[in-house]
Write a protein that binds this DNA or RNA. Structure first.
Lengths: 192, 192
DNA sequence: CGCTACATGTAAGGTGTTACATGATTCC
DNA sequence: GGAATCATGTAACACCTTACATGTAGCG
């Protein structure tokens, strides 16, 4: 129920794929889960310590290195499944772009256009990352049974990015019309 | 820059449309901005008090009621425009559904299907709300110059909801295939 | 007369982020 | 030997949510 369980879920999940050091967890969570998840890195070590205390993960003394990787235990896998089975709790939305557009009449069409353009670029970049992720998952063996599920999340990212691009194009057209009509009566920047 | 500025933006923005009591702000933010914004209601009165102290809003003693509405001042409008002009900062993503699907091989196809079905229903509901909002904006005069901007955000909600539905349908099909192939070797729910 | 909605706040607790501190290893 | 990267942590702070406390107005 508490939010911190969610951090545990992400960490246990990552370790269920392969054992890792805390540092590697940072990287993996940022690079792989980053499209839809974020952990505050200040939390990773405390959570890891708690998981170790509960016997859900354990340090594996590696032979070829001094750094200790963390591996998930059987109890950890059980706990992970419990956590995953809990209903996902959506975070409260806080979309700064939408807030700005909603009060866009205070900002004016040009500034709004700029914001939408930026959003479009970000969506385009996200789409490219998703396509890269898709090929990466396809090429990487060792995810055999996980791959179809991971591709589900990649697909969600693609749909969402494409929708954002389509919306942005519409919005840009609408804003262009607004610019045209709003400058017409005042004939060049005058006040009504 | 600090996050709390965002609460100020939302509150000043709402008051720029019409003067309101703190209580009404709660309702408006929940019902109207709720699709892409949320305020913790415990923040509204403190922020309101701070805005009043800075002269950005003022209490209007209403003639017909004991409750005091808050109205935005000229300085408040100026401040609102400043705040809106700042670049929107995206909150760190935390999508519980995607987290669960990413580690879906631990959950199994049926449970994932259930999750996706729920997401689809939520998207469907969101789409219906968006369409309702669209007609509401169209019918409501008094938003004359704000209406086109508000419709931009409604359109974004529609695109996003439609994308979620399309994705869900694809995902359900994929999961159905997974269920079929995973149960095939075991021949109907048997243990491997 | 009691229930619901309106209205205004406060305080505690939990969460997450940032910045800092420290040291080992590897590569040039 | 020095720089970059790997690695582990901590502590302060900012933030948000929740629950509580309190009181009024209107309606059935």
């Amino acid at each position: 129920m508490p939010r911190s369980d969610q951090s545990q879920t992400a960490i246990l999940g990552a370790l269920s794929i392969m054992p890792m050091t805390g540092y590697a967890l940072r990287e993996e969570i940022r690079d792989t889960l980053g499209h839809f998840w974020s952990e505050s890195f200040g939390q990773i070590y405390p959570v890891l310590a708690e998981l170790e205390r509960k016997g859900l993960v354990e340090r594996q003394e590696a032979t070829d290195s001094r750094s200790s990787k963390f591996g998930i235990t059987d109890a950890g896998v059980t706990r992970l499944r419990e956590l995953l089975a809990e209903p996902p709790q959506a975070p409260n939305p806080r979309n700064g772009l939408m807030l700005r557009l909603f009060f866009g009449s205070q900002l004016g069409p040009e500034a709004c256009r700029e914001l939408v353009l930026q959003a479009r670029e970000q969506a385009e970049a996200a789409l490219a990352r998703m396509e890269a992720a898709r090929t990466e998952v396809a090429e990487n063996g060792g995810l055999a049974q996980a791959a179809p599920y991971i591709l589900l999340t990649v697909s969600a990212g693609e749909h969402s990015a494409r929708a954002a691009i389509a919306w942005a194009d519409e919005a840009l057209a609408d804003l262009a019309k607004l610019e045209a009509t709003s400058s017409q009566p005042a004939r060049g920047r005058g006040r009504p």
